[in-house]
């Protein structure tokens, strides 16, 4: 027998005696009915804002708490102006990005050498870029997260290797909460999921030395999100 058969046989043998369903430890919670408990997630998860404006405000508050930058731009002109300001403030010399309508316009406006990851790239070259500019699948108001996939963010490395990750999101990409984000993934990708899906919630951080917060442990030290 293979190890697979061995393990599954042991599992089936063990499961012949059922274990009682999880009880109540006296905190007042009662057992759920037959629908999967996660389908009622909105009843217990941290609250999410309802209207678009409230969701923008919630995302903004979360981003601030996470030490991410967040800017709402009224149109592409404002986005390009703010991006060039950021370029000058941080003296970007090389930009990495991928092909999409928003990112293409942004890269053109920056007038800097651009490394596009779409058709493969040299990792050493990507490592020397000052910023990675990507699109995303969604912004999650409830948590301040950016949802990216290999498809929406130019592969796996672009959003993690450069020291500054800039996310360009459209207003229709703002979703209310995590359940909505997972619904969106299922709807958009169905059975053909990208090989990597990542919720990015603030810039890279660590507290491994005396539990003191340090940003930019391995990933980007800065995360800036533009909602266009």
């Amino acid at each position: 027998m293979s190890a697979k058969d061995d393990i599954l046989a042991r599992v089936r043998e063990a499961l012949r005696v059922p274990a009682p369903r999880p009880g109540d430890h006296g905190d007042g919670a009662t057992a759920h009915a037959d629908t999967p408990p996660s389908h009622k997630a909105r009843e217990y998860l941290p609250p999410a804002a309802e209207s678009f404006d409230e969701q923008v405000a919630q995302f903004s508050a979360n981003a601030t708490a996470l030490r991410a930058g967040f800017h709402v731009c009224n149109g592409q002109d404002e986005l390009l102006r703010r991006l060039t300001e950021l370029r000058d403030a941080e003296s970007w010399k090389r930009v990495a990005s991928h092909a999409s309508s928003l990112t293409d316009a942004a890269c053109a406006a920056l007038r800097l050498p651009v490394l596009k990851t779409d058709a493969g790239y040299d990792v050493h070259a990507l490592e020397t870029c000052d910023v990675g500019i990507t699109g995303c699948d969604a912004l999650v108001a409830q948590t301040g997260s950016v949802l990216v996939t290999t498809r929406s963010a130019g592969g796996r490395a672009l959003s993690i290797l450069p020291p500054h990750h800039v996310v360009l999101a459209r207003k229709d990409q703002l979703v209310r909460d995590l359940p909505a984000a997972f619904e969106l993934l299922k709807r958009n990708y169905g059975s053909d999921y990208p090989s990597m899906i990542s919720f990015i919630t603030g810039p890279s951080r660590t507290g491994d030395i005396e539990r003191i917060l340090v940003l930019g442990a391995h990933g980007p030290k800065r995360l800036t999100i533009f909602l266009v």
Binding site: N62, M196, F199
Partner: peptide, 11 residues
């Protein structure tokens, strides 16, 4: 509230 990177890998 949520850790910084929550990532899914399928292949």
């Amino acid at each position: 509230p949520l850790t910084c990177y929550n990532t899914l890998y399928g292949g």
